[in-house]
């Protein structure tokens, strides 16, 4: 009873800042306003799912593909890093994890701008390469630069949950596995990995979601053909007064992301019940 007030205020907070905006997006996506009158329409969705002109669907597919690659790379890079970090002595570990978080103190936009001047055709990296007599890197304005930007910006979101789980792992479980004759690799695949699976899944979600919806990274590092769904949505609100179509695309992307999250959740609970 004592906490009723807190619960109420939280409900009000959640309604104002989570539910109301979502409902508003849904409302915009399903209506067309013509001067003063508002009418129900599915036009925004049919414009997106127009199979004779599938370019918006292609952009969505492309966004999922690029975000998927970035997430996979984050996992491949992040897991070993988290593992190494967790196996270090506590003081060194604290220092190194601080180093990982340190860049995040600086504005995300600035860090992405920095990559722009590093990667440009005549940028810092290429100038260095040519001084060393090496061939120039041509990745600015391409999909690769966008993926690089995502991996760079979102890698800590993969490392931190895994690292936090790994340092709390009960060492006696690992010792038991060792005592029972498992090789280090077997201990890893049969004890450590399954126990860190929830962390991996939350890491995947935390990297994938900002990647699939970003528009800043693709705009700064990408070129004419790397527009992501976030770019197209931003355009509808900022340059073209088409809230309906922008909202419809937001709803569509939310449904897809929700589906993916549900999928990982289900697998997660199966794992636990086993």
């Amino acid at each position: 009873m004592k906490y009723k007030g807190i619960t109420y205020s939280y409900v009000v907070y959640a309604f104002t800042f989570f539910l109301a905006p979502l409902l508003l997006i849904l409302f915009y996506s399903l209506t067309a306003s013509d001067g003063g009158s508002v009418s129900f329409t599915l036009e925004n969705f049919t414009r997106f799912f127009d199979f004779s002109n599938p370019q918006y669907m292609k952009v969505l597919g492309n966004s999922f593909r690029i975000a998927g690659i970035a997430t996979l790379l984050c996992l491949l890079l992040g897991y070993p890093m988290a593992y190494i970090l967790a196996s270090l002595k506590p003081r060194l570990r604290a220092f190194l994890s601080l180093l990982f978080i340190l860049p995040m103190w600086m504005n995300f936009l600035l860090r992405t701008y920095a990559w722009m001047s590093l990667l440009e055709t005549n940028g810092i990296i290429n100038t260095l390469l040519s001084k060393l007599g090496l061939p120039a890197l041509q990745i600015m304005y391409t999909e690769k630069a966008v993926i690089l930007g995502m991996v760079y910006n979102f890698l800590p979101f993969m490392i931190l949950p895994i690292y936090n789980t790994l340092i709390k792992l009960d060492p006696s479980l690992l010792n038991a596995s060792d005592d029972l004759g498992a090789s280090p690799w077997q201990t890893f695949t049969r004890v450590t990995l399954p126990l860190s699976k929830p962390a991996i899944l939350s890491g995947i979600n935390m990297v994938f979601m900002p990647s699939v919806t970003t528009f800043v990274i693709s705009r700064l590092l990408g070129g004419s053909s790397t527009a992501l769904i976030g770019d197209i949505i931003e355009k509808q609100f900022k340059l073209v007064d088409d809230k309906g179509f922008g909202s419809a695309m937001s709803v569509i992307i939310m449904i897809f992301v929700f589906g993916l999250v549900a999928l990982t959740r289900e697998k997660d609970s199966e794992e636990v019940s086993l």
Binding site: Q55, A227, V240
Partner: peptide
């Protein structure tokens, strides 16, 4: 005009 520009950017 708006549709054309959105289309071009998305293609």
């Amino acid at each position: 005009y708006e549709e054309i520009w959105s289309y071009v950017l998305a293609s």
